[in-house]
Structures are given as C-alpha cells and as structure tokens.
Design a protein around this nucleic acid. Structure first.
Lengths: 339, 339
DNA sequence: GTGAAAGCGCTAACAT
DNA sequence: ATGTTAGCGCTTTCAC
C-alpha cells in the first residue's frame, strides 16, 4: 500500500519527494506542512500534499529548517554534576518539560566541575546554534561566570554571579527558613532550636535569616544560644544531639535532611520520641531520606524542578527577570510526621 | 585589536568571512579547519586561515555541517523518568560522557511514561536527525517497544524487549545477587537469609538465583525457609524483622537498600547490633541511604553510569552486541560497615 | 493560488 | 596547492 521509504533503510524522504508525488512545488509543500498563515493554498493541493506526506512517511528535517531560518530550537543545559545528586536530575526534568512545551529541545552536557570540559561543552553548544544556555550547579552558590557564556544568552540556575551580571534563578532560602520555622511555631512550639551548617553559603545565611524573621514575627526573641553549628551531614546532626538536648528546646529546625537524619539517631539513643518529645523539621526534601525515616520527616522542599523550568522561561523571555538580584523560587513545606 | 563579531551581536562569522580575511577560498578554510588529511595546504595559507579564525572568533556551524555531510552527531536519550530517582541521572551522565568522548552530543527527553509524550519525543529526535536513540527506564524491566523506535537505530538501556528484538543493556542481577551473598559468605556466615521483594521482576528472580548459586558454590544447601518475602521498601524490611530473627540467620541479604533501611530500624528495636549480632547486605547502592545509615551499609551497586555508557557504545557499534539476550553489566560490591 | 529561485553555512568533487 | 561549484533540505520573496 504505502511506498514509504522512511525508517532504517532507503534514503530519507524529502520535501522534494513529497512535492513530486503531490504534483506541486516544494514551496507549496512547505506551506502546508508548516500551516503557514496567510499562504493561500487550494483545498485540493493541500489535500494532495497531506496525503503524500502520510503515504511517504515524510518527516521534516529540523536541522535544515534551522539552517534556513537562522534560528534554532535548541536550549543547552550545562551542569556541573548531573548525577552527584538526585537534585540535578530534577533541574533537567523541569528544564526539559518547559523547553518542550515551547517547542524547544534540550541539549545536555555534564562538566563535573572541570573547567576545560565546561569550555568545551559551551563551545559545542554554540556550534550547535543553541538559542541559549542554562548553566546550573547542583547546590545553590555563587560562581565565576565562564568567559564563553557571554557569547550567547545565558541564565544561571541554582547559582548566581557577583554583580548580578547574568540573569539567575535560585531557591528562596530565607523564605524556606521562615516557612520551616513557621510550621514549628504553628504546632505550638515556642522554644525552637536551629542546627545550622558551618559551611558559608546562601543556604547558611538565608535559612538563618528566615528562622529569625519567623521568630520575630511570632514575638519571640532570637536566642543565639539556640542555634547550633554542625557539619551539614548526618554526623553533624548526630553530634549536635546532646547540646540540643541541654537547650531544652521542644522543636528543632535542621539545616538539611541529612542533619535531621543524624539527629534522629542521636535522639533515639537518648530514648526520645519524635515528635512527642521533640519535633524536627528538615530542609531539602531529599526524598530517599525524608520519606523513609521513621517517623517520616517534615521538611521544606528545594524547588529544583521549578528552578529548571523557570530558567527556561527566563531564557526564552517568557518571563521578565527581576530588576536586581536573582529570581527567587519559593521552597514549599512538605509536611509529614516529625512535627 | 580584534574585529571579532562573534557573541551576542553582529551576524555570526561564517567560513566565507574567514576566507575573505585570509585571502583564500572557503574550500581551503574548510580543509584547514577540519584538519583534512590528504589536503595539501601551503604552510602560508594554513597560517593565514588560522589567524583569521582567531581574529574573527570563527565558530563552525555544526548544523550546516551535518546537513551537508548527511550524518549527524546527535544521540537521543528518551527516558521514562529522568527525575523520579537519582538513578536516571546516572544513566544520563554515563551516556553523556561516553557520547561526548566520541564527538556526539546528547539530546534528552523525558516522557513520564506517557505514551503520547514518548511518541512525540521520538518523532522530535528523528526530525533532528539523531544518529540513534537510547531508550531507558528507571528500573530494570521488560517493555513493549514503541513502534516509532524501529525507524532508527535503538538500544534499550535498563530494560529489554521480548524476543530480544532490540539490542539492550541491563544490570546483571544474578551476578549481583551472587556477589552480595559471597561477601556475606566471605565474612564467615553460613546461615544467610534473603529478604526478597514480592514484586515480579528481573531483580526478583535474578538476585534470588544469584543467592542460590553462591550458596551452592559454598556447599550450603538452599533453605527455602530462609527467604522472606517483603514489599521492596522500608516498611517491608521493618515488617520482616521478627520472622528473620526467628530464623536464627546470622546474616541477611536484602533485596534493596530501602528494605535494609527498614530492617535497621527493626533490628535496633530488638536491641540488636549490626554487624556484631547480624550482618546486613543491601542492593542498589542508593547513596543517600547506604552511605548514611549507621553503620553505613554494605551493598551492591546498580551500574547505572555504566549502563548509559555501554548503551552509547552499542549504539555507535563500538562494541558488538551479544548474540542473544541483553548485554549484562556487572553489579560491583560496595563494602562499608554493616558486615 | 502556486511555482521558481536564491540562499542558510558547510562539504566534497572536480578543475585548474 | 588552491579555487569553483554543486548540492544538503528547507524557507521565503517575488513572479506569474
């Protein structure tokens, strides 16, 4: 029935083939295939083209189209660590979905934080005529912008540059810290500790600021002795246990889920129950941890998917970038059973 | 100094521009830029071209090259769930690195397991003239091959099709199960339990087969009463605790890390110490869990990175596909402190 | 309404 | 040793 030559063998079907079968010119085929507005095509010709397209299994060559139009539908995503964490995957996912929605496709490159690989990756994307580049890191931080990025439209995802020289989208750490604290407050706690990381970062300062502002808003005076420094890992949380206990806090906001995980261990060793004896709130919503601790951990989610999606929107100019500073994406609370 | 017009503004520099500045023809430029073997170019001309390239900031247009050569350097990666798990990220990472190594770039698409999205994704890749497609799932299973995949070279990653109709690369579940058991054996255990999943899957049968074969090789008779069914999650492991304890096993191989995590909780409630009272082995090497449990969990790694890399190698024909059945990738042991 | 033709940036014969 | 030219598959302006 079909003389289709698409597929693994035979030379690919081109517009010319379709034109020949339909008995029209390639221009006409182009017009009907692209549903060109304002192209007056006779009903008959249109039908013949459509039939020929189906019969031959014609598939437009997106590359030729790009070349001819001078404008591609590629978006490049350069990540320093696609895999080190589940998080990066979410950024890709969000970026991909959003790009897709607007007819764009994602070109991804991993650089493992290596500068040479980074430059190579960017060069390659530029050679492929990407519309723009999303440059992302796997945790929120300030970066040095690679020189090559200035050669195309770029938006920073989960990172930002000094002087706000490039549009950026990052999680709203302060709001996140505030939200976490508010949840504890809403559960009736007044003496709330905060185990903060010892690592300088936007997360360190932002979450602390959020914690303070929530307390203030609730009319509770900030008590420096209630914030405990800890390595941002399980060990840190575990190690902070006794100091925390001495503070007589009834609830604790942990800098991240891993810290909370360590705290769980420490608390358990002291025979304390969560949340009856002490309520705990995490941060990050690291699924494998938070959803599987016992009791499951209430936390605040890092909006990686949204970060990727918003990055694409900014890049495509679908959304205006804030006048100054990065665009902040909210970190929503995820309530489970530790409060 | 430089009249460079690359970058955000100005029309892009083409080969013609370079030719003009260097005072040669585009053919010559093409030859030196691509380091064409057997193209005899005078030292002088070569130098002038190279200088012009730098001066103008010339960057080849990969799309035009593809169009003209008829052969692209894109590899498509269609995944059912880029983000649901840290794992998928590793597949992308491995595929990306390997593709890169051979001068290819990765086009990724997420389908969320939705058939329409899947077809659209494949169509889009075909339109972009991908060299071939990697079709991957986030856990090892048998799939129905989407019709459209037959239109190009495809290799299945972390999944396989009935009748071995497409080349595939999957983890070697049986070897993994054997390895896990062998580690327990090597630690001196003779009475080894196995908490297996209740979900039918290659993992269920493969790991069990590996467990049996390791026991046999050690001269230990397989004892059906030592294999316990459990939901493949934390709850399953927790629930299996008492039955396990009654069995008097001194070591236990868990179907996956989450089950092990639940078992940890159960064991702790019974006042048992790991590994002194009972040794536990996981499977999957789900980082966030395995590396952060107390004690850290010994396990067997699912080779996702390798799966992605091997998929690319198969696709590019760098490695022959096995005559029958999928290519098996070894699951290496990751020893920590639970044994 | 439809077609001819130029051109997107590059490669690859083929000339010279 | 280097230049000329004809495409690659498509879009688009302009004629008819």
């Amino acid at each position: 029935m079909s003389t289709s030559e698409h597929g693994r063998n035979g030379s690919p079907v081109t517009m010319r083939d379709v034109a020949k079968v339909a008995g029209v010119s390639v221009a006409t085929v182009s017009h009907v295939v692209n549903d060109k507005a304002g192209a007056r095509i006779g009903d008959d010709a249109r039908r013949r083209v459509q039939e020929a397209v189906i019969e031959l299994g014609y598939r437009p060559n997106a590359l030729a189209k790009t070349l001819s139009q001078g404008t591609s539908r590629f978006i490049g995503l350069v990540a320093d660590a696609i895999a080190t964490t589940p998080f990066a995957g979410q950024i890709i996912h969000g970026a991909q979905d959003e790009a897709w929605k607007h007819g764009y496709v994602l070109l991804v490159a991993n650089t493992d934080g290596n500068e040479a690989a980074e430059n190579e990756a960017i060069a390659m994307m530029l050679e492929h005529q990407v519309h723009g580049i999303l440059y992302s890191t796997w945790y929120h931080r300030e970066i040095q912008v690679p020189e090559a990025l200035h050669q195309t439209d770029t938006v920073l995802v989960d990172c930002f540059a000094a002087g706000n020289v490039l549009p950026a989208v990052v999680p709203d750490e302060e709001q996140g810290g505030r939200t976490a604290t508010e949840e504890l407050l809403a559960a009736g706690h007044r003496r709330i500790a905060f185990i903060n990381t010892t690592t300088p970062s936007p997360a360190q300062t932002g979450r602390l600021a959020g914690y303070r502002s929530a307390l203030e808003a609730a009319g509770i005076e900030f008590d420096e002795s209630l914030v405990f420094p800890a390595a941002p890992e399980q060990e840190g949380g575990y190690a902070a246990t006794s100091a925390l206990l001495e503070s007589k806090a009834t609830a604790v906001f942990c800098h991240n889920d891993r810290v909370a995980m360590g705290l769980y261990d420490g608390l358990r060793e002291h025979g304390l129950r969560i949340p009856e004896d002490i309520a705990v709130m995490g941060f990050d919503n690291q699924d494998v941890i938070a959803a599987h601790l016992r009791p499951t951990l209430s936390t605040v989610a890092l909006p990686h998917y949204e970060l990727g999606a918003a990055g694409v929107r900014l890049l495509l100019g679908l959304e205006p970038a804030p006048e100054s500073g990065p665009q902040l994406i909210a970190c929503p609370p995820v309530l489970r059973h530790s409060i």
